[in-house]
């Protein structure tokens, strides 16, 4: 009894197994060849000759999270578009192209509106995105 699609997905499993075998095998084989003389300085993090201060796992600029959020919206959108894209040509050959085209257009249109909103809010700017806008700045000074 073999699971469904066993022969189709077997190479995938084999390739992944091969990758693991390569990494583990080379590191184990290398263990026989390489020297192992750990020292305090050798095992410290590289900081151009300085003593590293603190850990690197600190707070990070919020714009990375904004990029990640926008990415997720676009990625989910394209993932949902794939099934439509596959049947699109068949539909248009059957003469139903208009309806599918306009439903795709509406779907993309919603996304485009969202992108324009993001853009106008300055979330697509990398540098200036979280500086205070001019109006807010002056308001803050008046108070």
């Amino acid at each position: 009894m073999t699971p469904p699609n066993f022969d189709v997905y077997l190479p995938v499993a084999l390739l992944m197994g091969m990758a693991v075998a390569m990494v583990v095998g080379a590191l184990l084989f290398g263990k026989l060849l390489r020297p192992n003389k750990p020292s305090f300085l050798k095992q410290s993090a590289y900081e151009c000759g300085e003593q590293p201060v603190g850990v690197a796992w600190s707070y990070f600029n919020v714009r990375f999270y904004v990029v990640a959020l926008i990415f997720i919206i676009f990625d989910v959108e394209s993932a949902l578009m794939f099934p439509v894209a596959v049947v699109y040509r068949r539909f248009s050959e059957l003469g139903a192209g208009a309806s599918v085209f306009f439903s795709v257009l509406i779907f993309i249109g919603v996304l485009v509106v969202g992108t324009i909103y993001c853009w106008s809010k300055g979330d697509l700017d990398w540098v200036r995105s979280f500086t205070i806008s001019k109006d807010n700045y002056h308001q803050g000074r008046e108070q």
């Binding site: 084989f29 263990k31 390489r34 192992n36 095992q43 410290s44 993090a45």
Partner: peptide
């Protein structure tokens, strides 16, 4: 590369 010492930072 295979004969290089394998160092892992102690804080990693």
């Amino acid at each position: 590369m295979i004969t290089k010492e394998d160092t892992i930072p102690r804080d990693a």
